[in-house]
Design a protein around this nucleic acid. Structure first.
Lengths: 140, 140
DNA sequence: TAAAAATATATTGTTTACAATTTAATTATA
DNA sequence: TATAATTAAATTGTAAACAATATATTTTTA
């Protein structure tokens, strides 16, 4: 029996793709508590840190484009977590700003990272090693 | 400045999610050549190996459910790569079988794994380590 | 400075992804 | 053996994800 590079078990991308989806699925019960999807959650993370950001740099942070972000940001605006306003200096830029309600949500999210970590069941070393390898793939 | 577990750069899931999408995106030019999406490609991988499989076990292989697979398999059937037929013994099962055309496609796909690997730019050791860690996450 | 190029976001269309529900078939059990 | 429980796919509805295109604004350059 010779080695077949087209066997699923010989792929590296496939477990990456599958594990990413499995982990996002594990977040769901926690994110349901605060009424966010995973993509909305990481968007809020950027805003919890930066307070305001335009769509382009948000997309660079998250590896997402306006086709994904525009409807998502409109949704977050409709929930009252962010505001969307064209920049005065350059009207091509849309500034996304966190609202008071958005800031307040952070407190409810504080417990999520730890609860998720205990789901993952990796040692500290394994997690660090995985972190490094993934960032190596993402390096551009 | 204290450690904030809600900062994007302190997440492990986020680079997993982002890297998976980036890598799938890198497949696109290669998969375009053979007219498949990434999800269709990994479905064909299972069929290149197993020749025939029902939707449930296909879903177990790929970590996908019938909600995703049903339309995808109909699409593959419409292209002529697979056939879909209810099992005689148990009519709840839908057997998905690879066609001649599906088998023939494998030859055109042979070069993809190597070309992808050179995109990834990981050493053999790094790839092996990543493989192990991802499978640890997927272990059920 | 008028036209061209570049930039930022939005829109359109297609495919995934998945939760929740429905339908149909099979198996278990009262 | 009729009824209940289980199982496998399909369907429905929503949210991503992304390529390709369109629109509007700003910057370059001829």
């Amino acid at each position: 029996m010779e080695y077949d590079p087209l066997k699923l078990e010989n792929q590296l991308c496939f477990p990456l793709y599958a594990a990413a989806r499995e982990v996002v699925k594990k977040y769901k019960p926690y994110l349901d508590e605060i009424g966010l999807t995973y993509t909305q959650y990481i968007t809020m993370m950027v805003l919890w840190e930066k307070k305001a950001v335009n769509v382009k740099s948000l997309g660079e942070c998250l590896y997402l484009d306006s086709g994904t972000l525009t409807p998502l940001l409109k949704k977050l605006e409709s929930i009252g977590l962010v505001s969307r306003l064209r920049s005065e200096e350059d009207e091509r830029n849309l500034m996304v700003k966190i609202t008071q309600k958005g800031e307040a949500l952070k407190e409810q999210a504080e417990t999520i990272p730890q609860r998720m970590a205990s789901c993952l069941d990796l040692s500290g070393e394994e997690a660090a090693s995985l972190y490094t390898l993934l960032h190596k793939i993402l390096k551009r």
